[in-house]
C-alpha cells in the first residue's frame, strides 16, 4: 500500500555515484530534467537513454528497486498519455469515433510524454537513491548559500527538508494504523460521494495532525537537548568540497547537455 513509495529513499551502496558531491548530483538532476524537455528526434532520445542506462549501471541500485518508484505515479502517467493521445491535433488521422480522434502526432506525443515522465522519475530517483537526505539538504544549503546574504533562511529551510524526509515514512505508517483503527470502529473510507468521503477523513486527519504536532514538539526538544541552536557555529560531518571526480562529473554533464542541444539544433 502506502509503504511502496521509494521516491526519496536512500539505497546504501559504495558506487561512484554515491561518492559524488551532492551539489553535482543536484545539478545533474536539473540538467537531466532540462535535457528531457530539450531533446527531439530519435538521436536525442537515444542519447538520453544511453546516459540514463549508464547512470543506472554505475549507481549499483537494483533496477527493480527504481522501477518500484514508478508505481505510485502510474495513474498520472496514464492520464498524461491519454490526454496527449486524444487531444493532439494533427493531419494524419488514425482513428475517429464521435468526438474521439487519434492522430499520428497524438501517438507520437503520447509516446514521448510517457518516455519523458518515466525517464524523469527514474533519473531523479538515481539522485535520491544515491544521496542521503542529509547530504542532499547539505548540498542544497551550500549551493544556495549566496541567497542567505539577501535574507533567505537557507539553513532553516534545508533542516526542515531533511526532517520532513525523515518523518514521511513514519507518518505514512501512522496513517495506515489510524486508518485501520478507525475501520475497526466501523469507519468507511471508500464508500459514498466525494463530499461524504471528505467528511469521513476527519477521524483520520485529526489524530494524524495531533500526532504530527506531538512529534514536532518532541523533536524540537530533543534537538535543543543536543545543543542545536540554528546554523551558526555548527561544524560539518561531511564538509562539502569538490574532488577530482566531481569536476569529471560536471564535465560529463556539460558534454551531455551540449550533445542534446547540438542534436536538436543541427539535426
Amino acid at each position: 500500500m502506502l509503504r511502496d513509495i521509494t521516491l526519496g529513499q536512500y539505497y546504501p551502496a559504495d558506487s561512484p555515484v554515491h561518492k559524488l558531491d551532492p551539489r553535482v548530483k543536484l545539478f545533474g538532476a536539473l540538467v537531466y530534467i532540462v535535457s528531457l524537455f530539450v531533446f527531439r528526434g530519435i538521436f536525442g532520445f537515444l542519447l538520453a537513454t544511453i546516459f540514463l542506462l549508464f547512470l543506472i549501471k554505475i549507481c549499483q541500485v537494483p533496477f527493480r528497486f527504481m522501477v518500484k518508484g514508478l508505481k505510485p505515479i502510474v495513474i498520472l502517467m496514464v492520464f498524461t498519455a491519454v490526454f496527449n493521445l486524444f487531444l493532439t491535433p494533427g493531419k494524419q488521422v488514425l482513428f475517429h469515433y464521435g468526438i474521439l480522434t487519434i492522430t499520428m502526432e497524438g501517438v507520437k506525443n503520447a509516446a514521448f510524454m510517457l518516455v519523458r515522465l518515466t525517464y524523469l522519475i527514474v533519473g531523479t530517483s538515481v539522485m535520491t537513491l544515491t544521496t542521503t537526505p542529509n547530504q542532499l539538504t547539505d548540498g542544497l544549503e551550500k549551493a544556495l548559500k549566496p541567497l542567505s546574504k539577501v535574507g533567505v533562511p537557507v539553513h532553516a529551510v534545508s533542516m526542515m527538508m531533511s526532517i520532513a524526509l525523515r518523518f514521511i515514512p513514519i507518518l505514512i505508517e501512522e496513517t495506515d494504523i489510524i486508518m485501520k483503527a478507525q475501520m475497526a470502529r466501523g469507519a468507511d473510507f471508500e464508500e459514498g460521494s466525494l463530499i461524504v468521503r471528505a467528511k469521513n477523513m476527519i477521524p483520520l486527519l485529526v489524530p494524524l495532525f495531533i500526532s504530527a504536532f506531538r512529534r514536532a514538539d518532541d523533536l524540537a526538544m530533543a534537538m535543543e537537548a543536543r545543543c542545536y541552536e540554528g546554523g551558526e557555529g555548527r561544524s560539518k560531518m561531511r564538509p562539502l568540497s569538490y574532488r577530482r571526480m566531481d569536476y569529471g562529473a560536471y564535465l560529463l554533464l556539460f558534454s551531455y547537455l551540449g550533445g542534446i542541444i547540438a542534436l536538436r539544433v543541427f539535426l
Binding site: 542529509n134 531533511s162 525523515r166 545543543c227 542545536y228 561544524s235 560531518m237
Partner: peptide, 19 residues
C-alpha cells in the same frame, strides 16, 4: 522515533558534535 533527526544512523549520532 521522535529524537532521531537524521535518516542514517551515523549522521544522527554526529548531529550533537556538529552543533
Amino acid at each position: 522515533d521522535n529524537q532521531i533527526i537524521a535518516s542514517v544512523v551515523e549522521e544522527d549520532v554526529g548531529f550533537g558534535p556538529e552543533n
